[in-house]
């Protein structure tokens, strides 16, 4: 069942993004930024964790989950070390994803090349 809900919830979050693309003038870059910020807000309001428990990767894989990760990280760090945690918590939690993106990007640049779209 967890697999089914991951598929449905993840797909539904993507459909919301598609509706924003089709019905508003928002560019993809703005939608992504909005998703991450919205993830932080939803997490802060305590709304995202229940969804993550319910849908697993369906909630954590979309970029809303990235915002949730940042918010949770900050919260944990503030609990552990107090005020300095507002600076260290977010990126610490997101470090794996960001570092992996950077490392694999440079490796991809090493082996890949720009290609025509046809």
């Amino acid at each position: 069942m967890q697999f089914f809900w991951a598929f449905v919830v993840g797909g539904a979050i993507c459909v919301i993004g598609q509706l924003l693309i089709d019905y508003t003038a928002l560019t993809p870059a703005r939608i992504l930024t909005g998703y991450v910020v919205a993830g932080v807000v939803l997490s802060a309001l305590g709304l995202y964790q229940p969804l993550a428990d319910f849908a697993g990767a369906g909630a954590s894989v979309p970029l809303l989950g990235f915002g949730h990760l940042l918010a949770q990280g900050v919260q944990k760090a503030v609990e552990a070390i107090g005020l300095p945690g507002i600076f260290t918590g977010g990126l610490t939690a997101a470090a794996g994803g960001i570092a992996a993106s950077l490392v694999f990007a440079v490796l991809a640049a090493l082996v890949g090349k720009s290609r025509d779209q046809n």
Binding site: I21, P28, S114, R115, D116
Partner: peptide
């Protein structure tokens, strides 16, 4: 040239966008 224009005005050629 499609590729020269894309990378200058829009997005990288391997960027997945509609």
């Amino acid at each position: 040239h499609f590729c020269a224009a894309e990378r200058q005005f829009r997005t990288p050629l391997d960027y997945g966008g509609k």
